[in-house]
Design a protein around this nucleic acid. Structure first.
Lengths: 124, 124
DNA sequence: GATGAACGTTACGTTAACTTCATGTTTGTG
DNA sequence: CACAAACATGAAGTTAACGTAACGTTCATC
């Protein structure tokens, strides 16, 4: 596989802008691409996977700060972590929040259905 | 019931700041409280209910613009609306978006559970 | 070896949803 | 009536998450 990907290809394949990639690098959410002499950065498939994951989490409504807290769990090896209890409690916290939000959204969905029914009934 | 509520009480009972109430009034999301002579605004329970609904929808991730589009449906009579087809398609669009988001969140929830399982298994 | 597309860096601009500040008016309680 | 708490209004500041502009460098291909 070709592991010499520049920022343009990385951005295009992840469906984000170049500016976004650089912004994520600047805040440490994405690792800097290796610079090979000339000044240009080169990226790997791993970075692409991570970038896509970040984008996915963002669409769920997580802020970049929140994403920073959880995205590593997709890529790190748990056996190397010292404070597993802390990580676990963080994960459980996010799980509770997520499930709570699912419930609220389901209620909103039901309300929308009610409104739709009301309006549909007006056509009879 | 006492229907002479001023902005402080309204804000406090809806768990938002006074500034937020005024901001919502300024962008037309909340009706202006009636001014009784002196310049101060007085609000009703209806406004409080509306304000709470706005806050609830905001927590679901809707923007104030989006809230403006749907919040009226909680309080108006459908039979009085002229462009019912338009409203219906709008509501169906929000329903689809919401259900989509529920699905994605459920997937995220499952992923979180997987990670938690991983970490828990490390303690054995 | 020229030349256009892609890249790098710095800095200012933008939008949403407010907050903070400044300053003046109204209310209500002792 | 004094006086603090609550209210009104306007303008400027804030944060997140980038977008846009300006300007110089590098890559690749003809």
């Amino acid at each position: 596989m070709d592991n010499r990907m520049r920022i343009g290809e990385l951005a295009r394949r992840a469906q984000v802008t170049i500016r976004t990639v650089r912004y994520y690098e600047s805040i440490g959410l994405l690792p800097q691409g290796m610079r090979e002499g000339s000044g240009q950065h080169y990226y790997t498939e791993d970075t692409l996977v991570r970038l896509r994951k970040i984008d996915q989490l963002k669409k769920l409504g997580l802020s970049l700060d929140e994403i920073r807290e959880v995205v590593d769990f997709y890529f790190i090896d748990p056996s190397g972590v010292q404070s597993k209890q802390k990580v676990l409690s963080l994960l459980r916290q996010y799980l509770a929040q997520t499930d709570q939000k699912i419930n609220e959204l389901q209620q909103f969905s039901a309300e929308l259905r009610t409104h739709i029914d009301y309006f549909e009934r007006c056509f009879t």
